[in-house]
Amino acid sequence: MRTTLITFGLIILSGLGFAQDIKDLDFISPFKDGLAAVQRDGNWGFVDESGTLVINFRNDVAILPGEDKDKSKYPYFKEDRCLIQKIEKGIPFYGFIDKSGKIVIEPVYINATNFKDGMAVVSELTKESLGTNDLLDKRVVNYSFTEIAIDKSGKLLYFLTDPQHVTLDKKYLRKLPKIKSTVLSESLIAIPSKTTKNWTIMKLQK
């Protein structure tokens, strides 16, 4: 009888909407795109506006400067996508998760912007084999990156810049190659000139 009463009481409490609190948080961000980032022990999760932890704590989300006047740094969603990063040999590679926490774009880019008007600009890495150094008995490779625009599934939409050489070594790659192309609207992207400080507005064909 006692067990029955306890079970019945738990059912009533559940029906009244009692939920477990999320405790011992080190940081709580403002809500962006319907979710707020929460930090615990160096890992990040996301809660919705009901206070439910919808993405469990993880260590691969990318930390970004807050927008507007918010100078704090935390991960956030924009257009249902959040940047993640994977470190390989000391070099970060970027991709995206959706609001379920699923990786929808693998972390293969050496830099990336947030999405705007359905597009993100990413730096795509290309590896070219140049042969073998007989003296050192090592393969010689050349790395370059190109700025491209992708959609929310990771599909290539547009090539934006010519390939640029990059040394893929953490001793030399002290800063990520800065992304210069900017999404202005769903039909316009600003692209920097190859040789001057001027810009070109690229009209997109849908």
Rank of each mutant, 00 (worst) to 15 (best):
R2M: 14
R2L: 14
R2F: 13
T3N: 15
T3M: 12
T4E: 15
T4Y: 15
T4S: 15
T4G: 11
L5W: 14
I6E: 12
I6H: 08
I6M: 12
I6S: 11
T7P: 02
T7F: 13
T7W: 11
T7V: 15
F8I: 14
F8E: 12
G9P: 05
G9M: 12
L10D: 07
L10W: 14
I11Q: 10
I12M: 09
I12Y: 11
I12G: 00
I12R: 03
I12H: 05
I12W: 07
L13G: 04
L13N: 09
L13I: 13
L13T: 09
L13W: 06
L13F: 11
S14G: 15
S14D: 10
S14L: 15
G15F: 12
G15M: 10
G15I: 12
G15Y: 04
L16R: 08
L16N: 06
G17P: 07
G17R: 06
F18C: 10
F18P: 04
F18G: 06
F18I: 13
F18S: 05
A19Q: 14
A19F: 13
Q20W: 11
Q20A: 14
Q20R: 12
D21I: 12
D21H: 12
D21T: 15
I22W: 07
I22S: 03
I22G: 04
I22C: 03
K23Y: 11
K23A: 11
K23E: 13
K23R: 13
K23V: 15
K23H: 10
K23P: 03
D24M: 10
D24Q: 10
D24W: 10
D24A: 11
D26N: 07
D26A: 05
D26S: 10
D26P: 01
D26L: 03
D26M: 05
F27R: 02
F27W: 08
F27K: 00
F27Q: 05
I28W: 08
I28R: 03
S29L: 05
S29F: 07
P30V: 05
P30C: 03
F31N: 07
F31R: 05
K32S: 06
D33E: 03
D33M: 01
D33F: 02
G34V: 10
G34S: 04
G34M: 04
G34Q: 02
L35W: 03
L35I: 07
L35P: 04
A36Q: 00
A36E: 05
A37P: 03
A37I: 02
V38P: 06
V38L: 04
V38D: 05
Q39L: 08
Q39M: 12
R40H: 07
R40M: 05
D41W: 02
D41T: 07
D41V: 05
D41I: 03
G42S: 04
G42T: 07
N43I: 09
N43Q: 14
W44N: 02
F46H: 06
F46L: 04
F46W: 01
V47L: 01
D48C: 04
E49M: 10
S50I: 09
S50R: 10
G51F: 00
G51K: 08
G51N: 05
G51S: 00
G51H: 01
T52D: 11
T52E: 12
T52Y: 01
T52L: 10
T52S: 14
T52A: 13
T52P: 03
L53D: 00
L53T: 05
L53R: 01
V54P: 02
V54S: 02
